[in-house]
Simulated assay, not measured.
Amino acid sequence: MKKIIAIAVVAALAAGGWYYWQQQNKSGLPEGFVQSNGRLELNRFDVASLYAGRVKAMPVDEGSEVAEGDVLAELSSDTSSSQLDAAKAQKQRAQEAVARADAEIKAYEQQQKVAQMELGNAQNLKRDELVSAAEVTKRRAARDSAAASVSAARAARAEAQAAVAAAQAQIDQAASVNEDMAIRAPIAGRVEYKIAEVGNVIGAGNKVVSLLDPRDVSMTVFLPTTEISRLKVGDEARIVLDGMDAVWPAGITFIATDAQFTPKSVETQSEREKLMFKVKLKVPADTALQYKGLLKGGLTGNGYVRLDKQAQWPENLAVKLPH
């Protein structure tokens, strides 16, 4: 018995809501226009930390206006700073090894030239039978040894240069980590919530601050099947907020493909008309940004859509922005 009463109450509430929507849309609107109530919403960005660490500073407060790139939180960077210093020291050692290898190459190349000259002289003397074949062999061995030393020094330089490149890569990585210890705003916006506080230890990927995007302002309304079939994304809309003498321009950016509640497999005509679909009305970004101080999340009001594209917006729904 109680279950039957509960079902009856729910049905009565649903019928009352449907009746209210019908009455609301019958009052004050010309043919080809419908309205529905809703609340303003600002798109939210949850800013997270790329690395784990202890929160050292939080230079923003809830409600603060921030520009893109502003620091929202700073994590302790002792570890990343130490890694950066170590990488720089390693690069310095590798650069010194390159310098030593360059000096050795020059010295061995000079020795190779001298050894080549001595080998040539010995070969000339051998033709005149003034030196033995053993002396020629000795000079050739000296020349080959100098050439091998040059090759070895060049290989050492290549290895040292590779070490410099590896150290530079470590410097870049450590510098990037060090930079990422300062968590910055990805967009210009307003701080909604501070999720972390100074002294908190957070893990990689943990949220630190949530931002509201003042350029992305919308209102979600619900319309029945008979109206949805005549709308499409991109259609014009209007938003009127409670307590504000203004009519805001908007456009339809989203229309749900499914009803808000799953219908029964078989429905009568009247039941199909009561199915409600979610529609998103979005204020143009430049307008939203210009009036970011007025357009706040949670403000209540009505959204209006035009079903007949040939119909002219009534005078009371002509765009009217605050002065």
Rank of each mutant, 00 (worst) to 15 (best):
241 L>Q: 10
231 L>F: 04
55 V>P: 02
90 Q>H: 03
302 N>T: 14
77 S>T: 11
135 E>A: 11
150 V>Y: 05
241 L>G: 07
57 A>K: 13
146 A>N: 04
44 R>L: 10
298 G>W: 08
67 A>N: 12
129 E>C: 06
123 Q>A: 14
47 V>C: 07
4 I>M: 08
124 N>M: 15
36 S>M: 04
321 L>G: 07
161 Q>L: 09
257 T>M: 10
270 S>C: 07
203 G>C: 01
200 N>M: 11
211 L>T: 05
202 I>P: 00
145 S>A: 13
232 K>F: 05
295 L>M: 08
289 L>F: 10
262 T>L: 13
233 V>N: 14
300 T>L: 12
212 L>A: 12
288 A>K: 03
70 D>H: 03
238 R>Q: 06
293 G>K: 11
60 V>R: 05
19 Y>Q: 12
246 A>V: 03
119 L>I: 01
107 A>W: 05
75 L>I: 04
62 E>W: 04
253 T>M: 06
79 T>R: 12
58 M>F: 01
51 Y>W: 12
205 G>S: 06
147 A>C: 09
116 Q>I: 11
302 N>S: 15
111 Q>L: 13
190 R>L: 05
65 E>T: 14
182 A>W: 00
17 G>D: 15
78 D>H: 08
127 R>T: 11
93 R>H: 09
190 R>Y: 10
190 R>M: 13
235 D>S: 09
99 A>D: 10
235 D>I: 02
89 A>V: 09
88 K>M: 08
276 M>L: 14
75 L>G: 02
93 R>D: 12
163 A>N: 13
164 V>N: 03
17 G>T: 15
181 M>Q: 10
188 A>H: 00
196 A>S: 12
14 A>Y: 11
60 V>P: 04
109 E>S: 10
304 Y>G: 02
220 T>E: 13
186 P>M: 03
166 A>W: 00
265 S>M: 15
167 A>T: 02
109 E>Y: 04
322 P>E: 06
263 P>R: 05
234 G>M: 04
49 S>P: 05
306 R>H: 02
41 E>W: 10
283 V>E: 02
132 S>M: 05
50 L>W: 13
63 G>D: 05
71 V>L: 03
245 D>P: 03
179 E>C: 01
125 L>R: 08
83 Q>I: 00
102 D>H: 07
314 P>D: 00
116 Q>A: 15
37 N>D: 11
106 K>N: 11
169 A>F: 01
8 A>L: 14
27 S>C: 00
223 L>F: 06
268 T>R: 10
99 A>G: 00
202 I>C: 02
107 A>Q: 14
73 A>V: 15
321 L>R: 05
1 M>S: 11
217 V>D: 05
259 A>R: 02
108 Y>W: 11
152 A>E: 14
121 N>I: 11
116 Q>K: 15
64 S>A: 15
70 D>M: 08
253 T>K: 09
273 E>T: 04
219 M>C: 04
93 R>I: 10
218 S>R: 12
194 K>Q: 15
4 I>V: 10
217 V>K: 03
57 A>Y: 08
261 F>R: 11
107 A>D: 13
175 A>M: 06
33 F>R: 02
237 A>K: 08
256 A>P: 02
150 V>I: 06
169 A>H: 07
278 K>C: 06
148 A>S: 14
95 Q>T: 13
294 L>K: 09
218 S>C: 06
27 S>Y: 00
175 A>W: 03
28 G>W: 00
117 M>S: 14
181 M>H: 10
131 V>H: 02
